[in-house]
Amino acid sequence: MKRLILLFSLLGLISSCQKETQTIYNQVFESDDPLRPELMKKAQETFQSVTPREYRPNPYEKVELGKMLYFDTRLSKNGNISCNSCHNLDTYGVDNLATSPGDTHELGGRNSPTTLYAYMHKQQFWDGRAKDVEEQAGMPILNPVEHNIPSEEFLVERLKTIPEYVEKFAQVYGEQTHETLTFDHIGDAIGAFERRLNPRSRFDDYLDGDDSKLSALEKEGLTIFMEEGCTTCHSGVALGGGMIQKFGIYEDYWTLTRSEKIDNGLYDITKRESDRYFFKSPSLRNIEKTYPYFHDGSVDSLGNAVQIMAQTQLGKKLDDAKVDKIVAFLKSLTAAPDPKVIAIK
Rank of each mutant, 00 (worst) to 15 (best):
L65F: 06
N78T: 13
S259L: 07
D205N: 12
R200H: 08
S235N: 14
T223E: 06
V63A: 07
E134Q: 13
H121D: 13
L6H: 11
D338G: 03
C86D: 06
K261Y: 13
I149K: 02
D72A: 05
Q44R: 12
V237L: 00
L302H: 09
V341K: 04
W254E: 15
T104W: 02
Y206D: 01
T91Y: 05
F247T: 12
P337R: 05
H87S: 05
M226C: 09
V133H: 11
D33F: 05
H178A: 11
S298W: 03
N264I: 03
L75G: 04
K345F: 07
D90F: 06
T115I: 14
M68P: 01
P339L: 06
F169M: 06
A321H: 14
Y293F: 14
S151K: 05
K77E: 14
A310M: 12
V306L: 11
A328S: 12
P144D: 05
F203V: 05
D72P: 09
N80L: 10
F329W: 00
P339C: 03
N26T: 13
S9H: 00
K160A: 11
F29H: 12
T21F: 13
Q176A: 11
Q311F: 01
F154A: 13
R3H: 14
D95P: 01
A137T: 02
P113Y: 02
Q27T: 13
G12N: 00
G241R: 05
K213Q: 15
L155I: 15
A137I: 03
T73L: 06
E227H: 10
H234Q: 08
R196C: 09
A118K: 09
E288D: 14
F71Y: 14
Q245K: 09
C233W: 07
Y165F: 15
Q136G: 09
T334K: 10
L75H: 04
K2S: 14
D320F: 05
V323M: 11
F125G: 06
E152H: 07
F183K: 02
K271G: 03
P199R: 02
E175R: 09
D210G: 00
Q136I: 08
F193V: 09
F29D: 02
I342W: 03
L159C: 11
G221T: 06
T91H: 06
K289W: 09
S283G: 15
L181E: 07
N286S: 08
F47R: 02
A238E: 06
E64L: 12
F225E: 04
T177I: 00
Q136D: 03
A137G: 01
F329A: 01
L181I: 07
L116V: 11
Y55L: 10
S85E: 07
L116M: 08
F193L: 06
